[in-house]
Amino acid sequence: MIIGSIRDGIVIDHIPAGRGMELYSYLKLGRLDCEVALIKNAESGKRGKKDIIKIGAPIDINLDILGYIDTGITVNIIRDGQRAEKIHPALPETIVHLIKCKNPRCITSCEQELPHVFRLTDREHGVYRCMYCDTKAEK
């Protein structure tokens, strides 16, 4: 399979295999007018398989989402056909509106306008808990 290189844009690499579509959805890439390629199960030296997303325009990427999905993901910023920057997203301290609390006893289950906020409570294991009820986020 041949997918052409991009001149100005972003390559999100080392996405855990099978999670590329989830990331595509989180980043709302379906709304973009530019070229976007999602490559599933590409060969990876480190992981065996990986997903890759190529975006043919320089857009703002929410690094918090990438860090939450997997800190092994890399973001390559491409300018004039060259890699201008390589970013390793870190675990964000807080995640807002990305995941929803599934605890039926949580106040967010009945007050729809409240923001869904999760806080990093265990950096070593990447554990996030709902700010309101302390329920653990399920990845």
Binding site: N103, R105, C106, I107, T108, S109, C110, E111, L114, C130, M131, Y132, C133, D134
Partner: peptide, 22 residues
């Protein structure tokens, strides 16, 4: 509902005491 007193505290300038949330 769990977290309701926190929501109250986030919206007022007086102390809120959680007297039990779920």
């Amino acid at each position: 509902k769990e977290g309701a007193p926190l929501v109250a505290q986030m919206n007022v300038g007086i102390p809120v005491i959680n007297a039990g949330d779920g």
